[in-house]
C-alpha cells in the first residue's frame, strides 16, 4: 500500500449548523483515517466556525458534534490549517477556537498543537500540493 499514499485535503467552508455539510464532511474525514493516507483539514470562509470553542446547540435542537474534532489527533489527523483572513473577517482569533492537539509518537508522545494558522496564499499553495481535495 505504501506506494499508494495520497495527500487528501478536506476543505471546510460552511458553518457547522444550518446545513449538514460540516457534519457529513467530518464523517468522511474519520473514515479516511482508516486508509493510512496523508490527511489534512482546512477551514476557511464560514468553515472556521466549525471549530469555535464552547458550541451550544440546545436552543436549536441540532446535534452538537463539535467534540468529534477533538478526537482527530487520536486518529493521527494532526494537520489542521486555519485561514487567517477568514478568521479576521469574522472577528475571530485562535483563542476563539478549540484546542486541537495530538501526541507525537516520534517525540516521546509530547502533546503538540494540530492547528496551523496560514494565509490565504499559503493555503492555496497547500491545496496545490494535494492529490485529492474534497471541499464542502
Amino acid at each position: 500500500m505504501s506506494e499508494n499514499i495520497k495527500k487528501f485535503m478536506f476543505v471546510n467552508t460552511k458553518a457547522p449548523y444550518g446545513t449538514v455539510y460540516a457534519l457529513e464532511s467530518l464523517e468522511v474525514v474519520l473514515i479516511s483515517a482508516a486508509f493510512d493516507q496523508d490527511v489534512s483539514l482546512a477551514f476557511c470562509d464560514d468553515g472556521v466556525f466549525q471549530i469555535t470553542d464552547n458550541q451550544k446547540t440546545d436552543g436549536s435542537g441540532m446535534k452538537n458534534f463539535s467534540a468529534a474534532y477533538k478526537a482527530l489527533g487520536d486518529y493521527d489527523i494532526n494537520k489542521i490549517y486555519i485561514e487567517k483572513e477568514s478568521l479576521e473577517e469574522r472577528g475571530l482569533t485562535l483563542d476563539n477556537l478549540m484546542k486541537l492537539t495530538y501526541e507525537d509518537e516520534d517525540d516521546d508522545w509530547a502533546e503538540k498543537d494540530s492547528i496551523h494558522l496560514v494565509t490565504r496564499a499559503e493555503l492555496a499553495d497547500l491545496m496545490d500540493k494535494q492529490d485529492v481535495t474534497i471541499s464542502s
Partner: peptide, 21 residues
Amino acid sequence: SGLGQLVEGGIQADRLLTFGD
C-alpha cells in the same frame, strides 16, 4: 456501501471530481 468507497475511489483514480456547492 460505506464512505470507505469514496476514499478508495480517491486513491484509485487519477482525479476525483466533486459536483456540488
